[in-house]
């Protein structure tokens, strides 16, 4: 084990599980840890998010468009156009965002990643999990997807996986629960 800039440091617990030798400075892409196969979430999540987003944008768009058609005021086309652009942008962005979501179950922790412009990656050790939430709204149920959220003792842990197929969500929940139990460590 070494510190990030190369000073040799003895491993904390010599008799405990030996740590795999990792390079202090990772040579691969920072958001692509070596040997991690990301599992993508269901593309139906894009459908779910698009439906919600387009409802929010579509209602004012229709309203302004109707107003522009029915009234003599031409200016109504401007907000209508803005909302139309926003809707197009959402339609382009959401599938990309959903494709950027991913998770990976490693031997001792769960890896989550999200974002394209603002990327983030979270490592949650199984032993730190306090409880797991599985939730699905009416639209998600219709599409057969659910979201799984992991809770640690820290409210700052942002570890939720949206858009898992229902069966996979149930499997992951059970898997996480059993792994958490096996590695449970107080706080």
């Amino acid at each position: 084990m070494t510190t990030p800039d190369g000073d040799a440091v003895a491993p904390p617990q010599p008799d405990a599980v030996p740590a795999p030798a990792t390079a202090p400075v990772r040579e691969s892409e920072p958001f692509e840890p070596a040997g991690v196969a990301w599992t993508p979430v269901s593309p139906r999540l894009a459908t779910a998010r698009l439906v919600v987003g387009l409802i929010w944008l579509g209602v004012p768009l229709l309203g302004f468009a109707l107003a522009a058609v029915l009234s003599p005021i031409v200016w109504f086309w401007i907000p209508a156009g803005v909302f139309a652009l926003l809707a197009l942008w959402t339609a382009w962005l959401v599938p990309r965002q959903v494709r950027a979501l991913g998770y990976a179950e490693r031997a001792d922790d769960l890896l989550l990643r999200k974002g394209i412009l603002f990327r983030s990656m979270v490592v949650v050790p199984y032993g730190r999990m306090q409880y797991v939430d599985v939730s699905a709204g009416p639209l998600a149920r219709k599409l057969g997807i659910a979201s799984v959220q992991l809770h640690t003792a820290s409210p700052g842990t942002d570890a939720s996986i949206d858009g898992l197929p229902t069966a996979e969500a149930a499997r992951l929940r059970d898997q996480l629960a059993s792994r958490g139990e096996a590695r449970l460590a107080g706080l």
Partner: peptide, 12 residues
């Protein structure tokens, strides 16, 4: 041993 979870984040 008190680590709860770790996050790596990067903006544009």
């Amino acid at each position: 041993e008190r680590t709860q979870s770790l996050t790596l984040a990067q903006g544009p």
